[in-house]
Design a protein around this nucleic acid. Structure first.
Length: 767
DNA sequence: TGAGCGTCAATTAGC
DNA sequence: TTGACGCTCA
């Protein structure tokens, strides 16, 4: 390995890279070369002779883990102290997400937590259906609201955010949920972290083994850690001696899903002798962009004190697009995108951010009309499609037949005449006998199920034989397993023989799944690794399933020659030459939730102390702004149709916080939609009404977007004798007689070639 | 079993 | 306005 070139780092970065022997907190401002520091630090550890396999780097997303792995690989160049021809030092460094680290730990220690190595990872949908089933069995209301409520309680408890005040029967249900998961040899995402913590706390011998294994731990995006993740880190690094955490409190935007900024704010308190390094030089954005971001974030209380600076020029001024309504806003964004493109900016270097997904529709429409190619960047989608989930249910059943959730899904897709009643009888027998559903399908058991008729028993037996047959195919390869799951199960045939509009696409998706499985086989064949080192154990199918469960979706990613559309949350970690932020209005961004309990409202005209929600919105704004390298466009609309009604939102307070001189031109307020509102004057004349609150909106102030339709002409009485009508199944026929009137009237209709049918009037249309 | 309809709710989202 | 979901009926 060529000696590490530390001269390419700035002094702050260098000190973060070379610091040794104590806890290290790197406060890395946006665009300050954070990943660079992590990568160089890893490389420098390896250079010192630290075994690469004893280094663990944890991130939150697969994308970040992949990028880290790739960059470490590039820097270490496939050589190093422990390198042999087929094993590079870089691939020995463990770069993984919190969850995949937890998953691989659990596969290794499965028996100790009551699992086998083939355990299944349940996603939200699986959890939801399990929760519903348990609620039903407990004789409780089992709608999805109740199930969601239960799940969020479970999640709070698992993530250590429970306040200890959970009601007795909720705890009871949580217990049932856990037992059901274990009985199914399954874990949920929360367990991937909670079980390792529990294991470490109860088994010092196991903990000791893992501590010896990973001597050097690095954590990226530390401001996003939740309580359990933090506990896991503290268990693994009790003194923090070789713990290096990197993050930016100003970019903490996931409080709502359990992240706790206090971990980064209190790091120096929790770890004695912690060294703090601040990376404040920004390499990404032009001066004006950075100044705008800085102006907004500076208004937040309780920050690690740091001010970013740049050597880059001021660059182009910001531009405010103040529009009449959301259509106008979208059109103007589209026009600016087109103009930038004509000036030479490639599509993929531009992005439009919005606060809520519902905003994307109008933007999409405008971009389509303006012929601006775009892609919506979202987390996963392929593996959330119903047909794919059906196929995956088969795959998981093949790997782990104890998974009742998967059996229940697979047994109904494609429909095979096994209904609710039959399954109810089967479940009852299974739970009475203490069996999983699959075992209840065994020959000897089926005959003991109460109330089962011969037909149902036969259908159940056939399904059991199918699963047995599929399991035989599972051992071979992921590709063979997927093909069996898709073909032998009848899933593909179901869509092939369907005339539904999206049937062809669904069939294609199933084929794509098989392709993905084959690809995975090839990938593993071409990259032999240390046994189970970075990949889950348990054969190709289990490995493929874990990849599906833990990996996001590759398609829908930014990068192609298209403009990226995404929520502000999805924008974190990305950068573009030009960034547009739509909907910069009070009630949209900042979101109305953050407005609702803002105590500042009580102070006449003043901003006062803002809520923690508002602080998070402001951080989100900071994240959005700092994604831009050169151009930043902020847009707002005077009125906006959203969720079916119309609102008049004042401009966002964040707009009011940007110094006027950073804009190219501010609209003149007399003629502009951005009119001064009564309220605090701002730095730039965009006056924001801080007392604005959408809950004030009375029904009178919201009105339908479209004028009401003219009332329909009085319909001919449908029961009129001799009337010709059309029925969806029987076709066209003539009404012979009518019993009653209105849509509920029972009509006797003669259909040529079919005969007379008695049909409720509502099911036919007069022609 | 599954199509169709009425009701209800509505940030943000990763593994 | 969109979409998810539960209920009803052929």
């Amino acid at each position: 390995m060529a000696p590490l070139d530390l001269a390419s780092l700035n002094p702050e970065q260098r000190s973060a890279v070379v610091h040794r022997g104590g806890p290290l907190l790197v406060l890395a401002g946006a665009g300050s070369g954070k990943t660079r520091v992590i990568v160089h630090r890893i490389a420098s550890l390896v250079e010192e002779g630290i075994p690469p396999w004893s280094i663990l780097a944890v991130t939150f997303t697969n994308k970040a883990a992949g990028e880290l792995r790739e960059r470490v690989g590039r820097l270490l160049g496939g050589t190093g102290p422990s390198a042999t021809p087929d094993r590079s030092a870089a691939s020995d460094v463990r770069c993984s997400t919190f969850h995949s680290f937890g998953a691989s730990l659990l596969r290794r220690e499965a028996e100790a937590v009551g699992l086998t190595r083939d355990f299944t990872i349940y996603d939200e949908d699986d959890q939801l259906s399990l929760a519903k089933r348990l609620l039903r069995e407990a004789g409780r209301e089992a709608d999805s609201a109740a199930a969601r409520e239960l799940l969020s309680a479970i999640d709070r408890i698992k993530n250590g955010a429970g306040d200890g005040a959970e009601v007795e029967d909720v705890l009871e249900l949580c217990g049932r949920f856990e037992r059901a998961l274990r009985a199914a040899n399954a874990v949920d995402f929360g367990d991937l972290l909670a079980l390792p913590v529990r294991l470490f706390e109860s088994r010092p011998d196991v903990l000791d083994r893992w501590r010896r294994r990973f001597r050097h731990v690095l954590v990226d995006e530390f401001q996003d850690t939740n309580v359990v993740q933090y506990r896991l880190l503290r268990l693994l690094c009790p003194t923090g001696a070789d713990l290096c955490v990197v993050g930016d409190d100003d970019q903490s935007i996931y409080r709502w899903r359990g992240a706790d900024v206090r971990h980064i704010l209190g790091f120096e308190h929790d770890f004695a002798n912690a060294q703090v390094v601040k990376l404040t030089q920004n390499y990404r954005s032009d001066g004006n962009v950075l100044a705008a971001a800085q102006a907004v974030i500076a208004k937040n209380p309780h920050r690690h004190d740091k001010t970013l600076w740049t050597e880059r020029p001021s660059g182009a001024p910001l531009r405010l697009l103040s529009a009449q309504d959301e259509r106008d806003e979208a059109d103007r964004i589209a026009a600016e995108l087109a103009e930038l493109h004509s000036e030479g900016t490639v599509w993929s270097e531009m992005a439009v951010f919005y606060r809520i997904n519902a905003q994307s529709r109008v933007l999409e429409e405008a971009l389509r009309i303006a012929r601006v190619p775009y892609v919506i960047v979202r987390g996963r989608s392929f593996y959330e499609r119903a047909e794919i989930k059906d196929a995956v249910a088969y795959l998981r059943l093949m790997a782990n037949p104890r998974s009742d959730v998967d059996l229940l899904r697979a047994i109904g897709a494609p429909p095979r005449g096994i209904g609710e009643t039959t399954l109810e009888r089967l479940s009852r027998h299974a739970s009475a006998a203490g069996l999983c559903l699959f075992d209840a399908l065994a020959e000897g058991e089926l005959s003991r199920v109460e109330g089962l008729n011969a037909g149902s028993r036969g259908r159940l037996a056939r399904f059991r034989d199918l699963v047995v047959e599929l399991r035989a195919a599972a051992a071979e390869s992921a590709g063979a397993a997927a093909e069996a799951a898709v073909v032998t199960s009848g899933l593909l045939e179901r869509w092939a023989s369907s005339s539904e509009p999206d049937a062809a696409e669904r069939g294609e998706n199933l084929r794509e799944l098989v392709g993905a499985a084959r690809e995975a086989d090839e990938r593993w064949a071409s990259q032999p690794r240390e046994a189970g080192e970075d990949l889950p154990e348990g054969g190709p199918l289990v490995r493929f399933l874990e990849e599906i469960a833990l990996l996001g979706d590759a398609d829908g990613e930014a990068g192609a020659e298209r403009v990226s559309l995404m929520t502000l949350h999805a924008a974190k970690g990305l950068e573009f030459d030009a960034v547009f932020i739509a909907g910069m209005e009070e009630g949209i961004f900042p979101h109305s939730r953050a407005l609702a309990f803002d105590p500042s409202r009580e102070e006449a005209g003043g901003r006062g102390t803002e809520s923690e929600e508002m602080a998070e919105e402001r951080r989100l704004c900071y994240v959005g702004f700092t994604r831009a390298r050169r151009r930043l466009f902020v847009a707002c609309a005077r009125m906006r149709a959203l969720f079916g009604d119309l609102r008049f939102n004042p401009p966002s307070r964040f707009l009011g916080e940007i110094p006027a001189e950073l804009f190219d031109a501010l609209p003149s307020f007399e003629s502009s939609p951005v009119r001064p509102y009564p309220g605090a004057p701002s730095a730039n004349g965009i006056t924001v009404d801080y007392s604005y609150d959408q809950s004030w909106r009375s029904p009178e102030r919201s009105f339908p977007r479209r004028p009401p339709r003219p009332s329909p002409a009085p319909a001919r009485p449908i029961g009129a004798m001799g009337l010709t009508v059309r029925h969806a199944v029987f076709g066209v026929g003539k009404v012979v007689s009518a019993d009653g009137e209105g849509p509920d009237a029972k009509l006797t209709i003669r259909f040529p070639g079919v005969g007379e049918k008695r049909i409720v009037a509502r099911f036919v249309t007069p022609i």
